[in-house]
């Protein structure tokens, strides 16, 4: 126990054991190597468009030429619209997932009804369905009912989250029920109980599931790649790949400028809420 305390004390005070110094240097070099690709990306984005590929490559921007950014924003490719699309779809997907998951989890954890276990297990089957398996019928079905190339068609399947229901149910099972039972005796109905008593206690679970859902949607490539066809409806990841197709490899700076801009919001949030995001994303490992 004693070593634990001193270790903790040391860590809290920021004191480094001399034995760990060489190791820390190696780790910092490793960390540097890990972020190199991002540094090259940013450095290339600040180069004049004609010199994107000039060697030697620079790790830090050697000049602050903004031409690539201007072109990324003003080319025929509606970059800002794609930004907005990504945001709207991620936000809608997140809200939809949170609401539907919380509602379903309430039924699975608070209500008694016939075949409850069966319906729950049956929903968990969704964890095993690889996204690629549903794309073909979605595409051809959408083409038939007019949902192809729409944001609604992209967001709805993303809201169907077996994982979300599973996670929220686990969380609710650990919440005390006394208050809800008291409210029930006082004549409250389940709708009132859910909104006024249960939902306000779900904060941490909603935040975790929200982060996972938002980032998954923001980064999603395969479904928008298949289901969206017109430029002004595309999301960022697909849009940038399409932008590369238009620009050709010679105009690398423009692609890197677009990539830098699309990573920026994620990076800012990550810098502020690092611990929480890391914990949330690794939570989603339960998904496997």
């Amino acid at each position: 126990m004693e070593t634990t305390m001193t270790d903790r004390l040391r860590s809290a005070l920021g004191i480094v054991h001399w034995r760990n110094v060489p190791l820390m240097i190696v780790l910092l070099i490793g960390a540097g190597l890990m972020i190199m690709p991002f540094l090259w990306m940013v450095a290339a984005s600040f180069r004049p468009i004609g010199e994107s590929y000039r060697l030697p490559p620079s790790v830090f921007p050697d000049n602050l030429d903004l031409a690539a950014y201007r072109e990324a924003l003003s080319s025929g490719v509606p970059f800002l619209t794609m930004y907005w699309n990504s945001f709207v779809i991620a936000a809608a997907t997140t809200i939809g997932t949170l609401v539907t998951s919380a509602l379903a989890a309430f039924a699975f954890s608070r209500l008694e009804f016939r075949s409850r276990e069966f319906l729950f297990i049956f929903m968990l089957l969704g964890l095993m369905v690889p996204p690629a398996l549903v794309l073909i019928p979605l595409y051809f079905g959408y083409a038939r009912i007019g949902l192809l190339d729409t944001h609604v068609g992209l967001a709805l399947p993303a809201m169907a989250s077996s994982f979300g229901v599973f996670m929220m149910r686990q969380f609710m099972l650990n919440l005390p029920k006394a208050l809800e039972e008291a409210a029930l005796l006082d004549g409250a109905n389940y709708r009132q109980i859910f909104w006024t008593i249960t939902l306000p206690q779900l904060g941490p679970a909603l935040a975790t599931l929200g982060i996972i859902t938002f980032i998954t949607s923001w980064n999603n490539f395969v479904s928008p790649f298949v289901l969206i066809t017109s430029w002004d409806k595309m999301t960022l990841p697909v849009g940038i790949v399409a932008l590369q197709g238009v620009m050709g490899s010679a105009r690398l700076s423009v692609i890197m400028a677009a990539a830098t801009m699309s990573i920026l919001p994620l990076l800012l949030v990550f810098l502020v809420a690092q611990r929480f995001i890391v914990e949330s994303i690794t939570m989603s490992g339960v998904k496997g």
């Binding site: 490793g30 890990m34 991002f38 960022l236 790949v241 990539a259 994620l266 690092q274 890391v278 994303i281």
Partner: peptide
Amino acid sequence: RLAFFLPVLVSTALVSLV
């Protein structure tokens, strides 16, 4: 954590371009 987890966070499509 920043250096090792940032790639996890960013979309595969983007890092593939880089």
